[in-house]
Design a binder for these strands. Structure first.
Length: 504
RNA sequence: GGCGCGUUCGUCUAGUGGUCCAGGACGCCGCCCUCUCAAGGCGGAGAUCACGGGUUCGACCCCCGUACGCGCUACCA
């Protein structure tokens, strides 16, 4: 039989996907990528994007984790259509609130012989595992010991309140086949599939049961999740088939990797979306970057806005192999996105940055530097193509926020000659003669005039001026700096530098 | 160990049998622009397409095997 090609258009209007994280802390960038692909796929096909919290492991419960997840998702711009905080027609969206549902369905499984009670102690299970390993059995799995229990025996143990789990009864000797959009056809031998626990002894379901029941009840059309789930998909497929439910379309995404190609982990860098947010990355850049880790449109475009990603995204173009999370490209994308923003948008971000910086309060007697919007807008225009992060407006050009306290040593050696002080003094006198609010050209003409009178190249004045006024040897054109600082401040800084550098 | 998935420049990737002695992007190097630094433009280095067998007139592309990597192998997701 030829492999059925899944054409998204056929599902138009019925596309429903979900991001189903377990609330164990923060939103992992790998999780973001999974959520993003789900979101893009849903938006592209006018479907719904659902958030479901898989909190069925009480041992790993972390206070506030679900809230963090939601907050991080929203920050990234991934707005879901149904979820725990906003509700929806298929709720509740927290699995811990759906326990009775799982009970109902697992009973149905039991009545059909697809699932069974198991009263084995952990000791017996451990002993069994040990024994199987000793015998070098091909694969260790449960021996179906409790499947042999009679109905009466089961009832007695249940009445006796013996501790139990409910297991999936996997029939041996057959092939389990399913199609995956990114992997193609995948086959497993049922002999390699364990009688997985469906309901734990605490009454909570395992992921395998809960995920299948919920995806069906929530009418999920496409299960788009990480590759780590590929190996347990046969269990899920068995469940769908046993219930006689339609299987969703599966798409297992490649993993995100550390630079050494191991699974992306905290030990080798930041993995939480929150980490990148506090480091000053723009959400646009993070989303753009993560989208390209495992997917591309087939053309040469690298810079994307969310809207373009939605327009171009298809699951068929998702890669099969894992991708290293490489900061270099993220940095570049951040710079690109930052530069593409309007100065007004950057102004908002810069003001937030200043608010959290050492420059949030003006030093006394420095009123000449006011952080008015128009002033900051000039700083932005001057520095825009020189920064990759908003915070660099402060770290790369601190001189726009306070007079230089130190002067770059190497620049002093290179540009501060014995004749420099006299020349700069003359320049500052010339500046002093300028009109009240000199324009860039006024400063240029003044400097040109002084250079001619001194019979020196303009560079002999420009470099010392830059140094005097900024303390640095790099940055925007000196005349741009000087115009932004203003006449008074410029002259004051020249004089101050003359004092400091002379004495050193 | 078993099962599954993967393997194109350092990294992200294009490539679906001839147009590929493999294209783009990041990073790196050089040149141009220039008062500096960026940005921008131009150019360069960088991949025996993991390896070995097939199939074919012809393979990065199809098949088989090997190696390596990763995932799963829980009453975790």
């Amino acid at each position: 039989m030829p492999q059925l090609k899944i054409i998204p258009e056929l599902f138009l209007g019925n596309i429903r996907v979900r991001f189903a994280p377990s609330p164990t802390g923060y939103l992992h960038v790998g999780g973001l990528r999974t959520a993003l692909y789900n979101y893009l796929f849903a938006r592209k096909n006018r479907g719904q994007f659902i958030l479901r919290i898989e909190d069925t492991d009480r041992n790993r419960f972390v206070e506030g984790a679900a809230e963090n997840l939601i907050e991080a998702l929203k920050w990234c711009g991934l707005q879901f259509d149904e979820g725990p905080d906003i509700g929806g027609t298929f709720g509740p969206y927290m699995q811990s609130q759906r326990l009775d549902i799982y009970q109902k369905y697992v009973q149905e499984l039991i009545s059909h012989g697809v699932a069974y009670y198991c009263f084995c102690s952990t000791q017996r299970l451990e002993a069994l595992k040990e024994e199987q390993q000793k015998q070098k059995l091909l694969q260790a799995k449960y021996d179906k010991h409790c499947l042999a229990l009679s109905k009466k025996e089961v009832e007695e143990k249940l009445a006796n309140k013996d501790s139990f789990v409910i297991r999936l009864n996997v029939e041996p000797n057959h092939r389990i086949i399913f199609d995956d959009i990114v992997r193609g056809r995948v086959e497993f031998d049922s002999n390699n599939v364990d009688d997985q626990v469906l309901i734990k002894s605490d009454g909570y379901p395992t992921y395998h049961l809960a995920n299948v029941v919920d995806d069906h009840l929530m009418q999920i059309s496409h299960v788009i999740r990480g590759e780590e789930w590929l190996s347990s998909t046969p269990k899920h497929v068995l469940l769908y088939d046993s219930f006689k439910w339609k299987r969703p379309v599966f798409a297992h995404l490649p993993l995100l990797l550390n630079p050494d190609r191991s699974k992306l982990s905290k030990r080798q860098g930041d993995v939480a979306v929150e980490d990148y947010r506090t480091k000053g990355f723009l959400k646009e850049a993070l989303v753009n970057f993560v989208a390209l880790l495992g997917w591309n449109a087939g053309d040469d475009q690298e810079f994307y806005y969310m809207e373009e990603l939605i327009e171009k995204f298809t699951l068929e173009r998702v890669n099969k192999s894992g991708a290293v999370f490489d900061l270099e490209k993220l940095n570049w994308l951040n710079a690109e996105h930052l530069r593409k923003k309007s100065n007004e948008d950057i102004l908002i971000l810069l003001k937030q940055e200043i608010h959290h910086s050492q420059f949030s309060t003006l030093p006394a007697g420095r009123q000449v530097l006011n952080y008015s919007d128009s002033y900051l807008l000039q700083v932005i225009a001057a520095m825009k193509e020189r920064v990759s992060f908003v915070k660099e407006y402060l770290t790369k050009s601190p001189y726009f926020f306070e007079p230089p306290k130190e002067f770059e040593e190497t620049a002093v050696q290179k540009n501060w000659k014995p004749e420099t002080p006299a020349q700069l003094k003359k320049l500052s006198n010339e500046f002093n003669l300028l009109v009240a609010n000199p324009a860039k050209e006024d400063y240029e003409h003044a400097l040109h005039k002084v250079a001619e009178e001194l019979n020196v190249g303009k560079g002999k004045l420009i470099h010392p001026l830059r140094l005097a006024v900024s303390g640095m040897s790099t940055g925007p054109g000196v005349f741009d700096i000087v115009v932004i600082l203003g006449k008074e401040e410029t002259i004051s800084r020249i004089n101050k530098a003359l004092e400091i550098i002379k004495t050193s």
